[in-house]
Amino acid sequence: MAISYKLQRRKVVHQILKERGDAAVITGIGNAVHDVASFNDDPKNMYLAGVMGGASMVAFGIALAQPKRRVLVITGDGELLAGVGSLATIGVEQPKNMSIIVIDNQAYGATGNQHTHTGSGVDLVGIAAASGFKKTALITTQAELESELPKIHSEPGPYFAVVKVTNKSSPRIDAPRDGTYVARRFRAAVTGESM
C-alpha cells in the first residue's frame, strides 16, 4: 500500500541547508546524519548518532536556550515515531523558533528497510496538528518544497513538515562520531564561548 515518491532525500536536505543562515541543526539517528554531513560539517550541527526518539526534545531544549536562533530538526520517520509523544510536549510549549523536518522514506533505512508506520496510513502531519503545531506541511514535490522553504526557516513556529522521499540509499558520508567533540563544538558555535 506504500506509495512511491520522487524527491531524493539528499537533495532535499541540501536545499534546506543552503538557506540555513545561522540556524542550529539537530539530526536524528540514521540517514539524516549522513544527509546533513554530506552538505557540510557545520559546527552548528549536532548529530545524534544514538538516542532514537530524542532529536526533537534535544532541539527543543536548544530552542528554549537560544530563543533568537532558528533550530531545525532533520530526522527520519522512524526516529520521530520512536518519540512521537514529544510532539505533544512541543505543541504545548509552542517554541516559535523551532522547525521539525521529517525526511520520510517510510522505512527503517539503517536496519534493513523494514516498513515504518508512515507507509501504513499513519499521518505524522495530522498528529503534529493534533498536538498543537500551528504550521504544518506535507511536502511531496519540488514545487511544494520550494514554497515551504521560507516557512521552514522563518515562519513563527513550532513548524512541522514531512517530506516524502524515495527509499533509494545514498552514499554514506560520515559526521564526526565523537559526542564530546561534537557537543563542545556546537556549544561554542552557538554561544560564542570557547570550547
Binding site: L48, A49, G50, V51, R177, G179
Partner: peptide
Amino acid sequence: EFNPWQVPM
C-alpha cells in the same frame, strides 16, 4: 563497535 553512541547502552 564503530558508533561510540551505541557503547554506553
